Amino acid sequence: MLSEKFKNNQIILASGSPRRQELFKELGIDFSINVKEIDEIYPSTLVEEEITNYLAKLKAKAFENELQEKDIVITSDTIVWHDNRPLEKPKNKGQAIEMLQELSGTSHKVITSVCIKTTKSQNVFFDVTTVFFKKLTFDEILFYVENYRPFDKAGGYGIQEWIGFIGVTRLEGSYFNVMGLPVHKLYEELMKL
């Protein structure tokens, strides 16, 4: 459906995330990948989806002067929101362990924003999923961090990996949103273009 709708467009996914690329492929659209290096810095007054909306727009802005008429660029940003603060990507093993200890036995929100930008328009939307973790043992956390090295993942974990299989007890919202792309909403928004 989408492949027919966009057969004359150039869809650009501006994400280096293998999970987002994989999910995007499943939509059945031809696309290219073009990632611009930007400083992911946002005003400290922002909270929850304000952060991800801001960063998704910032990533799209990097394409501003080079978009052609038929181009559609799609950017995205994901954070874990826990205890009224964002948990971003851990910088090292110690940080990843700390984050998982913090998430253990509690629930948190995963917020993903997506920006769809063309030469004529820009649309930003977001999705929120609440994830519930069982109480994780230190050995489980250590095993996961040492074997899966989740340093490119917000909150220090990937739900589609071992820790998700053994640790996540319940979800409220989209599973794919936790992986980094609310595919159902992206589909709806693309169909509106």
Rank of each mutant, 00 (worst) to 15 (best):
L2N: 06
K5C: 05
K5V: 04
F6W: 03
N8E: 12
I11D: 01
I12T: 12
L13W: 08
A14T: 02
G16S: 14
Q21D: 03
F24A: 06
F24C: 11
L27W: 12
G28T: 07
G28E: 02
I29N: 03
D30E: 15
F31C: 00
I33F: 06
N34A: 13
V35S: 02
V35K: 10
K36M: 10
K36A: 15
K36F: 14
E37Q: 11
I38E: 09
E40G: 01
T45P: 04
L46K: 14
E49C: 07
I51C: 01
T52E: 04
Y54W: 07
L55W: 01
A56W: 00
K59T: 10
A60Q: 10
K61V: 13
K61Y: 14
A62F: 02
A62H: 02
F63D: 15
F63P: 10
E64M: 11
L67Y: 05
E69N: 11
D71E: 06
I72E: 10
D77K: 00
T78I: 13
W81V: 02
H82Q: 08
E88Q: 14
K89H: 05
K89Y: 04
P90N: 06
G94F: 00
G94N: 10
Q95D: 13
I97E: 07
E98N: 14
L100E: 09
T106I: 07
T106R: 14
H108R: 09
H108T: 13
H108Q: 12
K109W: 08
K109Q: 15
S113Y: 03
S113R: 03
C115F: 02
K117E: 05
S121N: 12
N123H: 15
V124K: 07
F125A: 04
F125C: 11
D127C: 12
V131I: 04
F132R: 07
L136N: 07
T137G: 04
F138H: 15
D139L: 12
D139G: 06
E140Y: 06
I141F: 05
L142F: 13
F143C: 12
V145R: 08
N147D: 00
N147S: 14
Y148L: 01
R149N: 14
D152H: 01
D152Q: 15
D152V: 05
K153A: 05
G156R: 02
Y157W: 12
G158N: 05
G158V: 01
I159M: 03
E161R: 00
W162N: 00
I163S: 02
F165I: 12
F165H: 12
V168I: 15
V168K: 08
L171H: 08
G173W: 06
G173Q: 07
Y175T: 01
M179Y: 04
L181S: 10
P182K: 01
H184G: 13
H184S: 13
E189K: 14
E189I: 01
E189F: 10
L190I: 08
M191N: 11
K192N: 08
K192H: 09
